[in-house]
């Protein structure tokens, strides 16, 4: 059959047919939906989408809105702290776990357990823990330290850190497990070699182990970053955006204006800005990560 070589299009035909539903989903739902949303963010759509072009009006209003600015600021604070603390806590826990300790699986289960809870449950639990009358503050005061004050959810200046504590409690277990898997993937010979050379353990971690764990870090980064941008349910359950607008998040703004405010155009404009923010981070990274290899 060498005479008629099959067209490359039909090579491995059954696999290609099997992939059609996924390709269609990706094109129509993800790409199509995104383009539609961006296009309608330039309209004055209210309750129902209507093609009435108004240029950049929705964006001008968006960046003029105090609540949106507070949301962006909150996302920035929350995102930065979450990223750094999640990595540090996750890695330290994993390194401690990797010291061939007893009852390792018991500890691992305990630390990973919060991840099995939804954000809604996490939010409600921490709402009570941080409640000044019934939570931490109440307990410490009942022990005798009357002036002790710890009520982050009732103080607009630090409320966002109250949300951050809950998110860290929920999320760092998963990061620990990922890091632990990475650590276990390191060849034991490396440790032996560094011990022979007399290199201290912390130096081995920082200069040898961490650079070797690059793929794990990238995976973790993607997971954490995605969780940060879409944070919504935690805030709704824990603070409802309050006190005032102190813990508002962009995703909540999108929902509130699309459905509560019956202003689709405004919601679309806000979600387009969220997409843009993600693209600004993802594109240079993807270029660095994959671009060079393809050419090389």
């Amino acid at each position: 059959m060498a005479a008629s070589r099959p067209l490359s299009l039909f090579r491995n035909l059954s696999a290609k047919i099997a992939a059609i539903p996924m390709i269609l989903t990706a094109l129509v739902v993800f790409v199509g939906g995104t383009l539609w949303t961006v296009a309608y963010s330039f309209t004055s759509s209210k309750l129902l989408p209507k093609w009435k072009f108004v240029g950049l009006d929705q964006y001008e209003r968006l960046w003029d809105t105090r609540r949106w600015m507070v949301s962006i600021e909150n996302l920035f604070i929350y995102g930065l702290c979450m990223l750094v603390l999640c990595f540090v806590i996750g890695f330290v826990l994993a390194a401690l776990m990797d010291q061939k300790i007893r009852f390792e699986s018991a500890f691992r289960t305990i630390i990973l357990y919060p991840y099995a809870l939804s954000f809604i449950v996490t939010g409600l639990v921490w709402q009570w823990v941080l409640n000044p009358e019934f939570g931490v503050q109440g307990i410490v005061r009942s022990l005798g330290w009357q002036s002790f004050t710890f009520d982050p959810l009732y103080n607009a200046d630090i409320a966002i850190y109250g949300v951050l504590i809950a998110a860290l409690w929920q999320g760092s277990g998963l990061i620990m497990v990922l890091m632990l898997a990475g650590l276990r993937g390191i060849d034991q010979d490396i440790w032996k070699a560094s011990r022979v050379d007399g290199i201290p353990a912390w130096k081995t971690y920082v200069f040898i182990i961490i650079p070797m764990m690059r793929p794990v870090f990238i995976t973790t980064l993607v997971l954490v970053a995605a969780a940060i941008v879409k944070v919504y349910d935690l805030v709704v359950a824990q603070t409802g955006g309050g006190p005032g607008i102190a813990t508002e998040m962009p995703a909540k703004y999108v929902y509130d204006y699309m459905f509560g405010g019956q202003n689709l155009g405004q919601g679309f404009a806000a979600s387009t800005m969220m997409l843009l923010a993600v693209l600004i981070v993802v594109i240079p990274w993807a270029y660095m990560e994959f671009g060079s290899k393809n050419r090389g």
Binding site: K46, T65, R67, I245, Y257, G260, G261, Q262, N263
Partner: peptide
């Protein structure tokens, strides 16, 4: 007033 304006004043 529309729901949109109402929402803004509520915020």
């Amino acid at each position: 007033i529309t729901q949109d304006t109402t929402k803004q004043i509520e915020d």
